[in-house]
């Protein structure tokens, strides 16, 4: 089931969304997938998945290898800790956590990248977090459907 989620995320993130959403507003679906997995499938495999997704993200961005991977790994562990105390089912919580997860990944990526190149922070952070937040309920709904289908 995880393979389906990962494949869907990759296709949407790297092939579909860049074609239909303007630059700067593309949501971070990898962060949303990590958020979802951290909440519902907390595991060692999840950490590794976060790492490899991040590497793939870095490779597709063509800048440095590691910043996104570091961001996703840290986001995963952070959310996994929080998932013991919080719920993701409600629309509002999925909006908030979607934006939050994307924000964490963006911030860590920025912190690492900014050691080497000068980059803007606030506006891209807000753009990416907002678009991720708006996309989170839709993506989580699709993930839930896929999960139920596999369970059924």
């Amino acid at each position: 089931m995880k393979a389906e989620l990962v494949l869907l995320t990759l296709v949407l993130q790297f092939a579909v969304l860049p074609l239909i959403i303007p630059d700067g507003y593309i949501p971070n679906l990898s962060a949303l997938l990590i958020l979802y997995l951290a909440f519902y499938h907390t595991s060692i495999l999840g950490v590794w998945l976060a790492f490899f997704l991040g590497l793939l993200f870095d490779l597709s961005a063509g800048s440095l290898l590691g910043p996104s991977a570091a961001g996703l790994v840290l986001a995963y562990i952070f959310i996994a800790v929080l998932s013991k105390r919080l719920f993701l089912d409600a629309l509002v919580s999925s909006l908030i956590f979607g934006g939050f997860a994307s924000g964490i990944v963006f911030t860590i990526r920025y912190l690492l990248l900014s050691q080497f190149v000068s980059l803007p922070f606030w506006i891209p952070l807000i753009q990416e977090s907002l678009s991720s937040a708006l996309f989170a309920p839709i993506l989580f709904w699709i993930f839930s459907k896929l999960r139920r289908k596999n369970v059924g």
Binding site: T42, I44, W48, L65, I77
Partner: peptide
């Protein structure tokens, strides 16, 4: 949530190790 969740400490250890790998990769790729 999944009933067979591993200890958060183990996951944390993996995450820490991978984070360090990421830092190394960032430095190396630069």
């Amino acid at each position: 949530r999944s009933q067979t969740e591993p200890s958060i400490r183990v996951i944390f250890a993996h995450a820490a190790a991978l984070f360090l790998v990421c830092l190394f990769l960032t430095s190396y790729s630069s």
